[in-house]
């Protein structure tokens, strides 16, 4: 049997950090910036954020992995914890632990990188865009397809404008509903596959959004010839501990908190076809 010798630090222990700013992204979503000296992360990872007396929630890091010193989180109000987090003001304290989970893969040298985001899925993919821009020479073409409900629900509008003004990344923004003064597209993200440049057999696809949207996207990419092992999805389940102890986030054999949240479609395909797994 295992022997225990060294003293153990509480693995769910928290650090107290201060809020630097809190800005509204859309009607129900806020981006908070934390002063976080010494914390580094990889694109796609998440932190556990703790609102005093309310509880913890897993929140992906939405900032730039190459900007140390601050942590950026984009949070949607979906319950008491996220309500409390979105209500934090500059100077307030919150508890954090992490980062947790695996990160978006870089893909092969010379690949096309196709980033497909839906709704709040843009938050964990924003660091992947920064990462791709920092390593732009790694890829042939880099594209971002971003779908949202309405133009008002788009996150990171300043970034989008910036990315659209450079030639290093193709950006296609599409919404489910808009009026005809909208400058982007109206339609599903899959409509944009014919409008951005990628060679299916040499593409690494990073996908995050509602699970139904990810299923549709992953299957469409498969039908176009993108290998299932090159399509990566970031899944969401009820993560409570983030360290594989609490059991809540199991998806088949994987604890999504530590085996995921980013997993390739070839590993996920059958599970995404099982109801209530």
């Amino acid at each position: 049997m295992t022997t225990v010798s060294a003293p153990v630090v509480e693995p769910m222990g928290l650090h107290s950090l201060k809020v630097v700013s809190n800005a509204s992204e859309s009607p129900d979503t806020s981006t908070i910036v934390l002063d976080s000296p010494g914390i580094t992360f990889h694109a796609g990872q998440f932190m556990m954020l703790y609102a005093f007396g309310v509880g913890e929630a897993p929140i992906s890091v939405s900032g730039n992995p190459h900007s140390p010193g601050t942590l950026v989180h984009t949070i949607r109000r979906v319950g008491p914890v996220t309500d409390a987090l979105c209500g934090l003001r500059p100077g307030d304290s919150l508890g954090v632990r992490g980062p947790y989970g695996d990160s978006w893969p870089a893909g092969e040298q010379g690949d096309d990188l196709l980033i497909v985001a839906g709704g709040l899925g843009m938050a964990p993919l924003r660091p992947a865009v920064f990462e791709a821009m920092a390593n732009r020479s790694r890829y042939r073409n880099v594209s971002l397809i971003y779908g949202a409900r309405t133009p008002a629900d788009l996150l990171f509008k300043d970034d989008l404008v910036g990315w659209m003004s450079t030639s290093s990344i193709d950006v296609a923004v599409t919404v489910d509903r808009a009026t005809s003064d909208w400058w982007g597209h109206v339609g599903l993200v899959t409509n944009e596959f014919s409008r951005v440049d990628f060679r299916p057999e040499s593409t690494t696809a990073l996908v995050c959004g509602p699970e139904v949207m990810m299923r549709v996207v992953a299957r469409s990419l498969r039908d176009l010839g993108v290998p299932a092992s090159s399509t990566w999805l970031s899944l969401e389940r009820n993560m409570k501990c983030a360290i594989g102890f609490c059991g809540h986030c199991q998806f088949g054999s994987d604890f999504l908190c530590k085996d995921g949240p980013v997993l390739s479609y070839d590993r996920l395909a059958w599970r995404l076809g099982v109801d209530e797994l």
């Binding site: 949607r76 709704g119 779908g147 949202a148 409900r149 008002a152 489910d176 339609g187 509602p210 949207m213």
Partner: peptide, 9 residues
């Protein structure tokens, strides 16, 4: 799109 999957007001 009819499923209205994305969050929003």
């Amino acid at each position: 799109r009819l499923l209205d999957l994305y969050p929003g007001a």
